[in-house]
């Protein structure tokens, strides 16, 4: 604990100013979703209306894009959960030749700019003459989702004492029972948190997706088209607000899951 409980004024101003800088633009989205202005980004809004909510709900192209995004995110997250957990278990539980390489390999897709992942996958598809489909999008998304699950799982594995596994085996649990009764419950919340963050990441991804989607439209691609050539600003405003709301929930949930985990899943020493 710190004896100096109160921060210097300059530090407080800078910290809170930074927080406002981070949050204010997002808050702005909520106002614009209700503006009556249709053709410009005028501030302050000349008037407020809820009519665009109804218009957006009635738009099939938005729903289609949303559907594809959800499907891709669900599949990618599932793949990332399996691959990320397996890798985390191997890396944190044993030392083997190539261990360092694997942990570097996992970081690579987020350490390298997304455009590189995108263009290399696209040129690989065209070399191998693979047609664009949901699966080409999934391939790209899972690649960078793995690291999210992996990071969460590795952290939890490290905090889960290896003696717990010994103890389970010692008490008569075979490998399968040890996994289902001891390992899984201990890493469960970390996986759930990682899975949700991976889902949010995939749901939102646009840079890689533009290279792997072909003519398909995910929600971010729909947004991007509107950003580049604004045609229906009011609908875009409403979609933007909906996306913020939808991403806020998993973040909140992931926060509570991992925070709780710190109290219960720690290795006992």
């Amino acid at each position: 604990m710190h004896s100096d409980a109160c921060a210097p004024l300059a530090l407080r101003l800078a910290a809170f100013g930074g927080l406002i800088f981070l949050l204010a633009p997002i808050a702005l989205i909520f106002v614009y979703a209700f503006t009556t202005e249709e053709t410009s980004y005028q501030w302050p809004p000349p008037g407020l209306t809820t009519k665009w909510l109804a218009v957006t709900v009635g738009r099939p192209d938005v729903w289609q894009a949303l559907g594809l995004s959800l499907k891709v995110a669900a599949i990618s997250t599932t793949i990332a959960l399996v691959l990320g957990t397996l890798t985390a278990a191997a890396v944190s539980r044993s030392r083997f030749f190539g261990r360092e390489t694997i942990s570097l390999l996992v970081i690579l897709p987020i350490a390298l700019p997304g455009i590189i992942t995108g263009i290399s996958l696209r040129s690989a598809f065209s070399l191998l003459e693979i047609p664009f489909s949901t699966w080409t999008i999934v391939l790209g998304h899972a690649t960078f989702c793995i690291v999210i699950v992996y990071n969460n799982a590795v952290a939890r594995f490290r905090r889960t004492s290896g003696a717990l596994i010994d103890a389970a085996m010692d008490l008569g649990a075979d490998g399968l029972q040890t996994f289902t009764l001891v390992i899984l419950p201990n890493i469960g919340t970390a996986l759930l948190a990682g899975g949700m963050l991976a889902f949010a990441l995939s749901f939102d991804e646009v840079i890689v997706t533009t290279f792997t989607a072909g003519q398909q439209t995910t929600l971010p691609i729909w947004m991007l088209e509107e950003l580049v050539r604004p045609r229906q600003r009011p609908v875009t405003n409403v979609v933007a607000m909906a996306v913020v709301l939808v991403t806020f929930l998993p973040i909140l949930a992931a926060y509570y899951l991992t925070r709780d985990g710190e109290h219960t899943a720690g290795a006992e020493k």
Partner: peptide, 30 residues
Amino acid sequence: YLRNVNTVFQSYALFPHMNVLDNVGFGLRV
């Protein structure tokens, strides 16, 4: 798990996700 031998660990290695009763009953459960 096939040895009828049990261990008291240095760090105790109690399962953090179970209460005391389930910890003690673990060997019988499996």
